[in-house]
């Protein structure tokens, strides 16, 4: 059990932040570990039950310190906490009435909690990003193709950004860092260890506050065409 992870362990200073170290739970062959990152209370029993059921010998349960308000998923339009058993689920789907602007993959407690706070603002500004809760890459990989493509396809992966309470390189299960890394929001955004303080102070320094997240998503959405053009250049170079 990987407890008190992320910059949320702010009071204890950076000597106790689990930003990079929890990555060791990814250092196993595929199928040998189930990594689960529930972001709120109600997902915890769900992912434990789902992970145990797989019979996989090691289950790495990543949890965090600070209390957050349990979200009213119905009001927010977020999928049920039971969907966490599938490893990934939609916090916000694309609107069919607007051009698509890319996928935001979010993982961690403060990060997801803060992101949910800016959902109304995204609607207000007509920012049409899909938002996916990244709970467990292994549980997600066990779902059928239709589900996986419906939630987060391989194409989505090429056109995504991450918001994470871990280091950006630890999100490689979800995003392709060659372009997505430029938009990813993480505590190590400037490749420095964060300092300590209150949770709010450290989250601000980590640029994971609601304001920073909103700003990061705005930039990501605005750059959609530029991003796809960069991808096309890559393909051209390959041809």
């Amino acid at each position: 059990m990987v407890g008190h992870s992320g910059p949320e362990t702010a009071d204890d200073s950076r000597t106790h932040f689990g930003i990079f170290s929890p990555g060791v739970t990814q250092l196993f062959p595929e199928g040998h570990v189930i990594d689960v990152h529930p972001w709120e209370f109600n997902e915890v029993p769900v992912v434990i039950g789902a992970a145990l059921k797989t019979g996989t010998p090691i289950v790495a349960l990543h949890l965090t310190r600070p209390p957050i308000t349990i979200p009213d998923r119905r009001v927010l339009g977020i999928a049920s906490h039971f969907e966490a058993a599938k490893g990934a689920y939609l916090i916000r789907p694309y609107s069919e009435n607007l051009p698509r602007m890319g996928t935001v993959v979010v993982q961690g407690t403060s990060t997801t909690n803060n992101l949910t706070k800016v959902l109304p603002k995204l609607d207000e500004e007509a920012i049409n990003v899909k938002i996916v809760a990244a709970i467990s890459p292994q549980l997600f990989a066990m779902q059928d193709e239709e589900y996986r493509n419906g939630i987060f396809s391989k194409s989505d992966r090429m056109d995504a950004m991450a918001v994470t309470n871990r280091a950006k390189r630890l999100m490689s299960d979800w995003i392709d860092p060659s372009i997505s890394g430029d938009y990813t929001l993480s505590s190590d955004w400037d490749d420095r260890w964060r300092t300590g303080g209150t949770v709010d102070e450290v989250i601000e320094e980590a640029r994971l506050s609601p304001e920073h997240i909103l700003e990061g998503i705005r930039r990501f959405a605005a750059d959609r065409n530029k991003r796809l053009s960069r991808l096309e250049v890559f393909f051209e170079q390959l041809r």
């Binding site: 349960l61 965090t64 209390p67 009213d72 407690t109």
Partner: peptide, 14 residues
Amino acid sequence: YAKPGEKKPNRAAL
């Protein structure tokens, strides 16, 4: 499980 609006850390669920 907790009810919407309650304030809890996810570790308490363990």
